[in-house]
């Protein structure tokens, strides 16, 4: 594969019940490409957490996934409120999710830590009042 394979998804911020759709589609596509199951799991989990975060906190956004010979790159971009204190947000257990979100089983403060844990590279670019872009890579070689 000389050129990167690219997938683009709009993440609907109003529909919490369909959150995860983009991640499930990516998982399907990576399976068809024959990637190792553990790598697919890493990408799926990292992306799902990011997708859920966009739905919970930012009213949705866009997800772009590219697959190269060496890695899978996930770029999640939203125009939400931004992250005030990234260091604090990265701590396991820290969450700003509402009670309603918690009652659905989310908001445990594990989203960003899981994204970090399951990716080999992660960069957060966030400006309060403007939005957040998160880039993650999972190495496949």
């Amino acid at each position: 594969m000389s050129e990167a394979l690219k997938f683009h998804f709009d993440v609907d911020g109003n529909d919490f019940t369909s959150a995860g759709h983009a991640s499930v589609m990516v998982k399907k596509n990576l399976r068809q490409l024959g990637l190792p199951p553990e790598k697919i799991r890493q990408v799926s989990i990292a992306m799902y957490e990011g997708e859920i975060n966009m739905v919970i906190h930012a009213g949705g956004g866009v997800a772009d996934v590219s697959v190269t010979e060496d890695y899978v790159e996930i770029v999640l971009k939203d125009n939400g409120p931004g992250i005030k204190d990234i260091e604090q947000a990265m701590q396991e257990g820290f969450s700003t999710a509402t009670e309603n979100i918690r009652s659905l089983g989310f908001g445990a403060g594990m989203g960003l830590p899981n994204m970090k844990r399951y990716s080999d590279f992660m960069e957060i670019d966030s400006t309060v009042g403007v939005g957040t872009t998160i880039t993650m890579r999972v190495n496949i070689n």
């Binding site: 859920i52 445990a108 830590p113 899981n114 399951y118």
Partner: peptide, 9 residues
């Protein structure tokens, strides 16, 4: 587990 992100991780 019941906390979905926890389970996921």
């Amino acid at each position: 587990g019941d906390l979905l992100s926890w389970v996921m991780g």
